[in-house]
Design a binder for these strands. Structure first.
Lengths: 131, 131
DNA sequence: CATATTTCCTACTTATTTTGTAGGTATTAT
DNA sequence: ATAATACCTACAAAATAAGTAGGAAATATG
């Protein structure tokens, strides 16, 4: 599974934020999208650390995008929050002792690139305009 | 993660079988490839049910391929044994109540196809000749 | 200043999936 | 008869993903 619940949630939240320009309360966004509030905080932390969104504390605070919707690719969003996004653990640095001679490794690398390239072709705006 | 330990194991076993024409004892193949024997039986059951290999019981029995190595694509092998091979659970039939209007679903379908297409381009023979 | 609202932080719990074990039965060559 | 093998079912352990709990720190507003 490439995209888990966590990834779906992240995408929904990003889509919700893409519809606004001001800060949106995460509580509201989460509620409206059927996402547990506390879990959504966990997700936003990752997105904020990756620099994809900006948070503002206190009353009238919330989260907002830092760029235009067409400037976010799905690849970027999913890779920011899916812990095990890579195609196989073989690709993680130093995880395989015979990585230099393994005949299969190049295949995984190619797959990884293929997936990344595909997901880079879609932006938040693409998804917004579809509905 | 698209390819888990289980998928790696399946591939290694298939590669080992691709080097022989007679039945090979699974115990030996598993040992030689650092795979727990009993776990490997579990994997072979799936491969046999999918019709990718053939088993022979009793002494001098074992498993062997039913076709030539170049006739097995990686897609076929991995899809036969990876339980959660699809890109996201959204793609499983009836798993999403608003599948007909979801703007993201076409993206997942496309990704699924892309991955499948990529993995269909490599055969066991390709991997064999690389080493 | 007090209050309500919000992000942000740390730790824990529960659920699900993956990986691996245990203990056999049925079959077959020697 | 024996040893080697696939084949079968159930369980156990480990890893990962999903979700909860309880706050502290910041900030707009009355």
């Amino acid at each position: 599974m490439i995209v888990s619940t966590r990834g779906e949630y992240a995408l929904r939240i990003m889509l919700a934020l893409a519809g606004k320009t001001e800060f949106s309360s995460l509580r509201d966004v989460a509620m409206q999208n059927g996402i547990p509030h506390k879990y959504s905080e966990n997700i936003m932390t990752a997105l904020a650390k990756a620099g994809l969104v900006e948070g503002s504390r206190g009353k009238n605070g919330g989260y907002r995008l830092v760029r235009e919707p067409q400037e976010y690719s799905l690849a970027e969003i999913l890779e920011a929050i899916e812990s095990s996004f890579s195609v196989t653990s073989c690709l993680k640095d130093g995880s395989c002792p015979h990585a230099d001679t393994c005949p299969t490794l190049p295949v995984w690398r190619g797959l990884d690139e293929t997936v990344h390239e595909y997901l880079s072709r879609f932006t938040l705006k693409d998804l917004l305009s579809e509905r």
